[in-house]
Design a protein around this nucleic acid. Structure first.
Lengths: 135, 135
DNA sequence: TTAATCCCTATAGTTAACTCTAGGTCAAGT
DNA sequence: ACTTGACCTAGAGTTAACTATAGGGATTAA
């Protein structure tokens, strides 16, 4: 079975070797095997697991909570309910983040317009006259 | 003109007074006036400015960059191009974040399904048989 | 008038998530 | 034989963004 070195995995996932070792130290990747002298050997499935970890991280989940999930995975079928709930919570969280981003986008787009108009007029005063000032 | 105390503003914006004083120290709200003995008096417009600051923060913009923007605002019309460019960049960034979140959501939803099926079957092995394993 | 409750500053401490350094092992190339 | 360049651990350092503490001033309620 093909394996990858830590630096190959780092490159593939746009992480540093420091980060990967840090994840290991924090218990996120206990399944990664080692050679007799301690060198980590990453399997394809380990890289996939890391992709899930990165996905969870991108939802804003802290590393400690991700570790809890990894621990559940190691414990087997008895933790299926917890893991299901966790992903449902993540889903709700991502939905909320999308809503937030939408609102943010509205304000940002408003400001883009605000500054476009001001730039064309050469002065911000145009908005004071028009009473559309926000800032 | 009506003014607000730091704790009123904190409550309104779901921040702490610590955070507001920290923002002040970092130069994000140089326009907030003071009484003779140093107590901050927030105007309605200051609260609106803080809402814009929170919006920028929610796009992932670091406080130092927000300060740069605030400085530009103080400098007047000569910095309109920079400010316009900044908001256009923010817009692009938020668009990218939305794309990212969408991809994240796909994986999360996939895992929700994965665990729903496993939960119904009582075991994760169902996926090993069906070869839909991801993790 | 005194106690509570707000406000202030300066500065120290915290937390998360890295990021780096020192010191060492091991395999491959010259 | 020796240098280069991967890899390793333990532990120190960094950064951002708070968060809290100590010590003090002003206003208000009893």
């Amino acid at each position: 079975m093909k394996t990858y070195s830590i630096s190959e995995v780092a490159k593939e996932l746009n992480l540093t070797v420091y980060t990967l070792r840090y994840y290991d130290k924090e218990g996120l990747i206990p399944f990664v095997e080692r050679t007799s002298n301690g060198t980590r050997l990453f399997k394809e499935s380990d890289i996939n697991a890391l992709k899930v970890i990165e996905c969870l991280k991108s939802t804003g989940m802290p590393i400690k909570e991700i570790k809890t999930f990894i621990d559940w995975c190691s414990e087997g079928d008895s933790t299926l309910p917890q893991r299901y709930d966790m992903f449902m919570e993540r889903k709700a969280s991502v939905e909320a983040q999308m809503e937030e981003l939408k609102k943010t986008m509205e304000l940002i787009e408003h400001k883009c317009l605000y500054y476009k108009t001001a730039l064309e007029a050469g002065t911000e005063d145009i908005h004071k006259k028009e009473k559309i000032t926000i800032f």
